[in-house]
Amino acid sequence: DETGKELVLVLYDYQEKSPREVTIKKGDILTLLNSTNKDWWKIEVNDRQGFVPAAYLKKLD
């Protein structure tokens, strides 16, 4: 059920640097789980959840 889920576009590649982070690729469109922290957003990638720098993402309307 995708209702109410926010999507984000990945602006730059990011390689995870800790187990709490996930790797993302430029151009991916992913589900945003939590954006309350202005610097690190929690997203879902391939059934994995983790954090990436918010500056690497853009919210889609």
Results as ranks from 00 to 15, higher is better:
1 D>I: 13
3 T>Q: 14
4 G>L: 14
4 G>P: 15
4 G>W: 13
5 K>G: 08
6 E>S: 14
6 E>K: 11
7 L>W: 15
7 L>R: 13
7 L>Q: 10
8 V>W: 06
8 V>P: 00
8 V>T: 03
9 L>S: 04
9 L>A: 05
9 L>H: 05
10 V>D: 00
11 L>P: 00
11 L>T: 04
12 Y>N: 10
12 Y>L: 10
12 Y>A: 14
12 Y>C: 14
13 D>S: 09
13 D>C: 05
13 D>G: 06
13 D>I: 01
13 D>K: 03
13 D>W: 03
14 Y>H: 04
15 Q>M: 13
15 Q>G: 07
16 E>A: 15
16 E>F: 07
16 E>L: 08
16 E>N: 06
17 K>V: 08
18 S>F: 06
19 P>Q: 09
19 P>R: 09
20 R>Y: 13
21 E>F: 04
21 E>S: 05
21 E>D: 04
23 T>I: 03
23 T>M: 03
23 T>Y: 02
23 T>D: 03
23 T>H: 03
24 I>Q: 00
24 I>E: 00
24 I>W: 01
25 K>C: 10
25 K>F: 13
25 K>Q: 09
26 K>V: 07
26 K>F: 05
26 K>G: 06
26 K>A: 14
26 K>T: 07
26 K>M: 08
27 G>P: 01
27 G>S: 04
28 D>N: 09
29 I>K: 05
30 L>D: 01
30 L>A: 15
30 L>V: 15
31 T>V: 15
31 T>D: 06
31 T>C: 10
32 L>F: 02
33 L>Y: 04
34 N>M: 08
34 N>L: 08
35 S>D: 15
35 S>C: 10
36 T>R: 09
36 T>N: 12
36 T>V: 10
36 T>G: 09
37 N>P: 04
37 N>Y: 08
38 K>M: 10
38 K>T: 10
40 W>I: 03
40 W>Y: 06
40 W>E: 05
40 W>H: 03
41 W>R: 00
41 W>I: 02
42 K>H: 09
42 K>P: 01
42 K>E: 15
43 I>K: 00
43 I>G: 00
43 I>S: 00
45 V>S: 10
45 V>R: 12
46 N>E: 14
47 D>H: 12
47 D>C: 11
47 D>L: 09
47 D>Q: 12
47 D>V: 06
47 D>W: 06
48 R>W: 08
49 Q>W: 08
51 F>N: 03
51 F>T: 03
51 F>W: 15
51 F>Y: 15
52 V>H: 00
52 V>R: 01
52 V>A: 12
53 P>N: 02
53 P>T: 01
54 A>E: 04
55 A>S: 13
55 A>H: 13
55 A>D: 10
55 A>N: 13
55 A>W: 11
56 Y>E: 02
56 Y>I: 12
56 Y>D: 04
56 Y>G: 07
56 Y>R: 05
57 L>W: 01
57 L>E: 01
57 L>I: 06
58 K>D: 07
58 K>T: 10
58 K>W: 07
58 K>V: 12
59 K>R: 15
59 K>A: 07
59 K>T: 07
59 K>H: 07
60 L>S: 04
61 D>C: 12
61 D>W: 08
61 D>H: 13
